[in-house]
Amino acid sequence: MSGPNDNYDPKQVAALSPEVIDGYVADALSAIEAAGSSEELKQARLAHNGDRSPLALANREIGALPPAARKEVGQRVGQARSQVARAIAARQEVLADQELAKALVEERIDMTLPVQVVPQGAVHPVTAIIDKMVDVFVALGYEVAEGPELEAEWYNFDALNLPSDHPARGEQDTLWIEPIEDAKLLRTQTSPVQAREMLTRDLPLYIVSPGKVYRSDEYDATHLPVFHQLEGLVIDKGISMADLRGTLDHFAKAMFGDVATRMRPHYFPFTEPSAEVDLECFVCHGESVGNPDRPCRTCRSEGWIEWGGCGVVNPRVLRACGIDPDEYSGFAFGMGIERTVMFRNGAPDIRDFVEGDIRFSRSLLGGAR
């Protein structure tokens, strides 16, 4: 049986002597202290405490030593590597504080300097005015009602007392959906919502219905094939034309300020009696009428501007929707939303509403009263 091998190479042991290890540590500490940035410290760590550093290579040599020398040399190398690691951590903390302080000084933001603000969007004028119009009626106790834009012919025409030979049913006004036999169309007004509500809601009924409508109209400065309307409907006991007049006066003042209204006799199949609602010109207040020295482009010197239509609900419409006209009566009104915006803000061309120019939206919202 052979005994332990106590013989080993003195040169190999000399390479791991305290003097050599201390020299490795001294070189490492010097490089660490000289590092002036985190990047330089990283290079020093790789050179003196990385996998190919002198101390790492010395640590690998321990396994080749005889057992009698391993413990002492292992402790020596381990303590040296720990000392270098602590020095790296301490230096990293110092450098981090220095770099943070430098960044706070050099990268601070001067709040007094002019900046280029990223342009923000704007609410479309139609959306904004719908909210204002609806708020007026919600404050009066009305409810908001909506309906489909693809509508059945019965709701759009028959229920509203428009006979089969009425011109509005023709292709010159109505956009029909094929096949024609299905009697489907893009609604020409928001009045079908009123018919739907009368058929489904309990009485009394106080609603407003804003929405998009479609007509086979030319695209020009005063017409759009797709535009917006707001219609109102009241069905209750004892409702008269006087209630309608008071409601519209209140609505007009809420939209345009202290402005007068008037009603001119007109014909609508779904109301009887019916009227057109005019606004006193809020630019000249009638002073341009008969006065060539003070012409008014807004009202064309007529003193009044047409706003919408209204009237007492026709008894035939009430019967078609299952309401007894001997017990209930009501009124309805409607006006174009784009036209309301144009009146309030002086927009000259209705096509601007669909061109998508945000400058148009900002100019109207900024000038809204």
Score class of each variant (00 low, 15 high):
I21P: 02
V277T: 06
S240E: 07
P315W: 14
G309S: 00
L46Y: 11
L233E: 04
A15F: 12
P66I: 14
I358P: 03
V144S: 09
R91V: 12
A15I: 15
V94G: 13
G232P: 00
A68Q: 13
E306L: 12
D131C: 05
D217P: 08
D6I: 14
N49C: 03
L55W: 09
A368S: 14
R215Y: 05
T174W: 07
S274F: 04
I235S: 00
T200E: 06
G3N: 13
E33M: 12
I323F: 01
L100T: 08
V118L: 14
A47G: 02
V208K: 05
E146I: 08
R262G: 05
P325K: 06
G286T: 01
S301H: 01
G322N: 11
F343E: 08
A221E: 10
D258Q: 07
R294H: 12
D135Q: 06
K237I: 15
L160G: 03
P295R: 05
A90C: 07
A242F: 11
Q194I: 09
E61G: 11
P114F: 04
V138W: 04
G246N: 02
G211T: 10
T112I: 15
A320T: 10
H48I: 09
F256I: 04
V213I: 13
G50L: 03
V313A: 04
C299R: 02
V136G: 00
L364H: 02
L230D: 04
P179R: 09
P67Y: 12
A152P: 00
L57E: 08
A145V: 15
G78L: 02
P269Y: 05
L199V: 02
V73Y: 02
H166T: 07
P315D: 11
S38F: 10
R187P: 05
P292H: 01
P114D: 01
R369I: 08
E287S: 14
E181A: 15
G3Q: 13
A128Y: 00
R245L: 14
G170P: 05
P148Q: 04
G238C: 10
L160N: 03
V136A: 07
V117I: 15
P54M: 01
V73Q: 06
A64W: 02
V144G: 02
G36M: 10
N291W: 13
F333N: 05
I129C: 13
Y219C: 11
P114W: 03
L224Y: 05
V84C: 14
F360K: 09
F343W: 09
E151L: 14
L318N: 02
N161L: 04
W304T: 13
C321P: 01
E287R: 14
L162I: 15
L95C: 09
R60C: 07
Y206T: 10
P265E: 01
A221L: 11
L100D: 04
V136N: 07
N49F: 02
I358D: 06
E149R: 04
I177Q: 12
D202A: 15
P66F: 01
L160V: 07
A275S: 01
R60D: 13
T271I: 05
F268E: 07
E302P: 00
P4A: 15
I305H: 04
A275D: 04
D165F: 12
Q189S: 14
P54Q: 08
V123R: 13
A242N: 10
E61K: 14
K71C: 06
A183V: 12
S301C: 11
L279T: 03
